[in-house]
Design a protein around this nucleic acid. Structure first.
Length: 798
RNA sequence: GCCUGAGUGGCGGAAUAGGUAGACGCACAGGACUUAAAAUCCUGCGAGGGUUAUACCUCAUGCCGGUUCAAGUCCGGCCUUAGGCACCA
C-alpha cells in the first residue's frame, strides 16, 4: 500500500511548477495536436466517462512528449447553451456565475486525476475575449453572403421555448428535453451550409476518421442523384417541377403529390374547386407536430386538387394532383411524381385513394405490392426492353435534357443551418435592424456585443428572446445612419462556440486576431480529435463547415480541421444502465480518487474493456487495478545490482506491445501486457534496475504519479516525463524456442518445446515421435502432412 | 424499413495475412498467515466423461449450412442486440 494522496499531490505540483505540459508556439520540435471535446461545465460535475476519454488521450499526449514532440493538449469550456442556462434558472443565479462556479469544480476535478492539459491556454466560449471572435466570424459569414435572415417554418420546442435546427430536432423531438417539436413561423438567421454539401462530402477523403464516422457524415449530408422533370399544369401557365431519383419510371406516373405548403396552391387557388377541403387539410398538417408527421402517422392522408391536372410530358396523359404531408416542402422541389407500381409510399397512397397503378418494370406483382427491384422495362416507349436500371436512368435523363423537359439534378438532405435561438445565454448575433437601412452589421470596432448584466433571463412564451425585453440594450443607434435602431435579440446556438475553438487554443490570448496565421501554420490540423459518437454528425459537420468557410476566404491554412477522429464508448453504471441520479448508479470520480487514487482510477478505466465500446462500471474491477499498482509499488523491494534485463525477450515484446497498443487505442491489452510483466517479475523474485525502469516507463502514460515517484525514490534516472520513450529491438522480440503444436486431422494431440530454427523435416520427425500422436496415426494411412514453421504440424490420416 | 457495428466461461474481456480458444483481470472455492477479521500470499477454476492420481477422450466462440489439412476468424442464409438515419421522392 502506497501513500497515493501524497504522491499524486506531489507530482501534480511538480508538473505545474516545471510547466511540464506547456505547448510552445513555433518550437523547433515536431508538433502534435491532440484534442478532446471540451465539456459543458454542468452542475453535475465531472463524470467517470470524461475520465475515460481524457485519460486515453492523456496517455497518448504523454507518450508523444516522450517521443520528442511539442504537444498541444488543451482544455476549455463550452459554457453557452441550454444546460448552463437551465442550471442557472433552477438555482436562481446568473448563468455567468453558475458557469464560473461549475468551471471551478470541473477544473479542480480534472486536475486531481492528473491530466496533462496545458492550462495556460484555457478559455470558455462565454468569455467576452472569445465570443468577440465568434461574433466576428459570424460577420464574415454575413459579409460573404452565407448568413441571411429568412422567415420560415422552424422547429419550435414548446418546453425550451426556442427554435431548433433540423439537427437539434431529429426524430421530431427536442434533442435536449425530448418534447415533441411543433412548427412555428419565425424570422431566423440562417447559415448557407447547404452550399457546402459537396465540399463537406469531398473533404472526408482528406481525413483519417473512423469509417463509421465518415458513413454517419455521408448519411447526414444525404446526397442523391436523379433528375428534375417539368410537368405542365393543364390549361394554365404553371409548371410543376419534381425531383426524382427514378426518371426511368416516368411512364408509370399516375398522379402527382405536392407538399401542403407548396406555393402552387396559392397561385392556382382560383382554379381549385375544393379549396375548402384543401385549406382544411393544410390547417391540419400545420398543426401536426413533426413527430406526428413522421413518427406516428405512416398512414397516408391527402386531398385531391380538383380542377387541376398535370400532364405527363412523355405521353401527354392527364393525371391528378394531390396534396399530402408525406411530401416535404424542405426537400427537392416540394413536389413528387408518384409511381405507385415501383415505390412503396406511392403504392400505399394509390391504394388508399384508388388511383391506377401502371407497371413499367417486370418482376413484381402490382396486385400485392410495389416492386422496387430490377427488371425488364415495359410500357415505357424508348426504354422498353432495357433491363439495367442505371442504363435506363441515364438514357431517360439524356432524353429529358434533349427535349428540354427535365435535367440531371443532385439533391442533399443537408439543409441550411438555423442559427437563431430565442435564448439569453448565447452569443448575441451582432446585427442591428434600422428602419431605413435594413440589417446592418455591428462594426468590428464595437465587438464584442456583450450580454447585458441583468437578472431576468428566463425564456418567454411569445417566442421572443429574453433580450428583447431589455430596452436599454436593444435600442442603439444605427451604425450606418445614426438613427435609433434595434439590436438583433436572438443569440447563437450552442454549436457556434464549439465550431472553431480548436483554432483559438493555438493562440488563446491573442487580442488582435482570432488566431495568428503563424500559430495556425505551425500547429496545422488537429492530429487527433476524440469525442463522443453523439457528436459524429452534428458538431463534426458544423465544425468542418465553419473551417471550410474560413479556409475559402483565406483565414485558415487547411480546409479540413481534423486528421484522425475517434470516439469513446460510454461508461455505464454497474447495472449496465446509463448512469443517472434517479437510478442511483452514478459513480463520482472524486470519491474514487479519494479512496483509491487517481492512478488506480485511470488504470481501471483503461483496462475496463474495448475503448470504443460502452462498458459497465465495476468497483471490484477497480480494486483489481489498485491491487496491481500496489504490486508494482512493492517491486522496489526486489531490486538487485545486476545490469541489463532479466528477460530480454519479454521486455522487448512488452515495449513493442504497449507502444503499438497506445497508438491503436487498445489500452486494455496494454495494461494486460504490463500485468503479465509484473507477474513474471514477481515470479523471478529479483529484478534489475533496468527491468523496473522500463516497466514504470511503459506504465507512466496511464499511471503517471506512482511511476514518477518510484523512478525518483529508486533513483532510476531522470523524471519519466523528461525521458525518452523506451525503444525495442525487433530481433530481440523473438524467443529461441517455440511450442510446436502437433495435430492429427486438425485435432491437437501433442505439444513439444523446440528450437525456433527446427527445419520442417525435423518438425515432422519430432511430431511422429510423440506417444499420443503415434497412438492416433497407428495403423492408418498418412494422406499428407502440413508443416507450418514455428507453429505446428498437422498429420492427415485415413 | 435502410446503414453501421457486436454476439466467446459466472462476469469484463483476449486471440483475426485461417494455425494451441478463453491471455489479463474480476468473482468464486480451498489453503497459508492471524486470537479473529481485513489485507497479503499459494492453489484451483468452460462443460461433460475418464483415472487412485496422472494421462487421455468428447463437446464448446448466437443458430443452420459451406469452403479448408485446419474456421471465433473466410463464404451463404437466419436469429438477437446496440448505435445512426428514417414518408428525403
Amino acid at each position: 500500500m502506497y501513500d497515493f494522496k501524497r504522491i499524486e499531490q506531489k507530482w501534480q505540483t511538480y508538473w505545474k511548477e516545471h510547466n511540464t505540459f506547456e505547448a510552445k508556439n513555433g518550437s523547433e520540435k515536431k508538433k502534435y495536436y491532440i484534442l478532446v471535446e471540451f465539456p459543458y461545465p454542468s452542475g453535475a460535475g465531472l463524470h467517470v466517462g470524461h475520465v475515460r476519454s481524457y485519460t486515453a488521450l492523456d496517455a497518448l499526449a504523454r507518450k508523444r512528449r516522450m517521443e520528442g514532440y511539442n504537444v498541444l493538449f488543451p482544455m476549455g469550456w463550452d459554457a453557452f447553451g441550454a444546460p448552463a442556462e437551465q442550471y442557472a434558472i433552477a438555482n436562481h443565479i446568473h448563468p455567468k456565475d453558475a458557469v464560473q462556479e461549475n468551471i471551478k469544480t470541473f477544473k479542480g476535478q480534472i486536475q486531481t486525476i492528473g491530466i496533462s492539459f496545458d492550462w495556460n491556454r484555457e478559455f470558455a466560449t462565454t468569455d467576452a475575449d472569445y465570443y468577440k471572435w465568434t461574433q466576428w466570424q459570424f460577420l464574415k459569414f454575413y459579409e460573404h453572403g452565407l448568413a441571411y435572415k429568412a422567415k420560415k417554418p422552424i422547429n419550435w420546442c414548446p418546453k425550451c421555448k426556442t427554435g431548433l435546427s433540423n439537427e437539434d430536432s431529429s426524430g421530431g423531438v427536442c434533442e435536449r428535453c425530448g418534447t415533441p417539436v411543433v412548427q412555428k413561423e419565425k424570422e431566423q438567421w440562417m447559415l448557407r451550409m447547404s452550399d457546402y454539401a459537396e465540399q463537406l462530402l469531398d473533404g472526408l477523403d482528406d481525413t483519417k476518421f473512423q469509417e463509421r464516422t465518415k458513413i454517419a457524415q455521408r448519411n447526414w449530408i444525404g446526397k442523391s442523384t436523379g433528375a428534375e422533370v417539368d410537368f405542365k399544369v393543364a390549361d394554365t401557365d404553371e409548371t410543376l417541377t419534381v425531383f426524382t431519383t427514378r426518371p426511368d419510371t416516368l411512364y408509370g406516373v399516375t398522379f402527382m403529390v405536392v407538399a401542403p405548403e407548396h406555393p402552387m396552391i396559392e397561385t392556382l387557388k382560383d382554379r381549385i374547386q375544393n379549396m375548402d377541403a384543401v385549406r382544411a387539410y393544410q390547417e391540419e398538417a400545420r398543426h401536426k407536430s413533426a413527430f406526428e408527421r413522421t413518427e406516428l402517422v405512416k398512414d397516408k392522408t391527402g386531398v385531391c386538387l380538383e380542377g387541376l391536372k398535370a400532364i405527363n410530358p412523355l405521353n401527354d396523359t392527364e393525371i391528378p394532383i394531390y396534396i399530402s404531408d408525406y411530401v416535404m416542402m424542405g426537400y427537392g422541389t416540394g413536389a413528387i411524381m408518384a409511381v405507385p407500381a415501383h415505390d412503396d409510399r406511392d403504392y400505399a397512397f394509390a391504394r388508399k385513394f384508388d388511383i391506377p397503378i401502371i407497371e413499367v418494370i417486370k418482376g413484381g406483382n402490382i396486385e400485392e405490392a410495389a416492386y422496387t427491384g430490377d427488371g425488364e422495362m415495359v410500357n415505357s416507349g424508348v426504354l422498353n426492353g432495357m433491363t439495367n436500371k442505371k442504363d435506363s436512368i441515364d438514357k431517360m435523363i439524356a432524353y429529358l435534357e434533349e427535349t428540354k423537359i427535365g435535367r440531371k439534378k443532385v439533391n442533399y438532405k443537408l439543409q441550411d443551418w438555423i442559427f437563431s435561438r430565442q435564448r439569453f445565454w448565447g452569443e448575441p448575433i451582432p446585427m442591428i435592424y434600422c428602419e431605413d437601412c435594413g440589417w446592418v452589421p455591428v462594426p468590428e470596432k464595437d465587438l464584442p456585443v456583450l450580454l447585458p448584466d441583468v437578472a431576468n433571463y428566463e425564456p418567454t412564451d411569445n417566442g421572443e428572446s429574453p433580450l428583447a425585453a431589455i430596452t436599454d440594450w436593444v435600442n442603439t443607434p444605427c451604425p450606418h445612419c445614426g438613427k435609433m435602431a434595434r439590436r438583433e435579440t436572438d443569440t447563437m446556438p450552442n454549436w457556434a462556440g464549439s465550431s472553431w475553438y480548436w483554432l483559438r487554443y493555438m493562440d488563446a490570448h491573442n487580442d488582435k486576431e482570432f488566431v495568428s496565421m503563424d500559430a495556425m501554420k505551425y500547429w496545422g490540423k488537429v492530429d487527433w480529435y476524440n469525442g463522443g459518437m453523439e457528436h459524429a454528425t452534428r458538431h463534426l459537420l458544423y465544425a468542418r463547415f465553419w473551417n471550410q468557410f474560413l479556409y475559402n476566404i483565406g483565414l485558415v491554412p487547411n480546409k479540413e480541421p481534423f486528421e484522425i477522429r475517434t470516439s469513446h464508448g460510454m461508461i455505464l453504471g454497474d447495472n449496465g444502465e446509463k448512469m443517472s441520479k434517479s437510478k442511483g448508479n452514478v459513480v463520482n470520480p472524486n470519491e474514487i480518487v479519494e479512496n483509491y487514487g487517481a492512478d488506480a482510477l485511470r488504470t481501471y478505466e483503461m483496462f475496463i474493456g474495448d475503448y470504443e465500446k460502452e462498458a459497465a462500471w465495476s468497483t471490484n474491477g477497480l480494486k483489481g487495478c489498485k491491487r496491481f499498482l500496489d504490486r508494482v509499488w512493492k517491486l522496489q523491494d526486489c531490486l538487485n545490482d545486476k545490469d541489463g534485463y532479466t528477460d530480454e525477450v519479454l521486455i522487448n515484446q512488452t515495449i513493442r506491445k504497449v507502444t503499438n497498443d497506445l497508438e491503436t487505442m487498445k489500452y486494455n491489452t496494454a495494461v494486460s501486457a504490463l500485468m503479465i510483466l509484473v507477474n513474471r517479475f514477481e515470479e523471478a523474485k529479483t529484478i534489475t534496475r533496468s527491468d523496473l525502469r522500463t516497466l514504470i516507463h511503459l506504465l507512466n502514460p496511464i499511471a503517471p504519479h506512482i511511476t514518477e515517484e518510484m523512478n525518483e525514490i529508486c533513483k532510476l534516472g531522470t523524471p519519466l516525463c523528461e525521458s525518452s520513450w523506451p525503444t525495442y529491438d525487433e530481433a530481440k522480440c523473438e524467443s529461441e524456442t517455440f511450442t510446436m503444436v502437433v495435430q492429427v486431422n486438425g485435432k491437437v494431440r501433442g505439444k513439444i518445446e523446440t528450437k525456433s530454427e527446427t527445419s520442417k523435416e525435423e518438425m515432422e520427425q519430432l511430431a511422429r515421435e510423440i506417444e499420443n500422436v503415434k497412438a492416433h496415426i497407428e495403423g492408418k494411412e498418412i494422406v499428407k502432412t502440413i508443416v507450418v514453421p514455428k507453429k505446428l504440424v498437422n498429420i492427415v490420416v485415413k
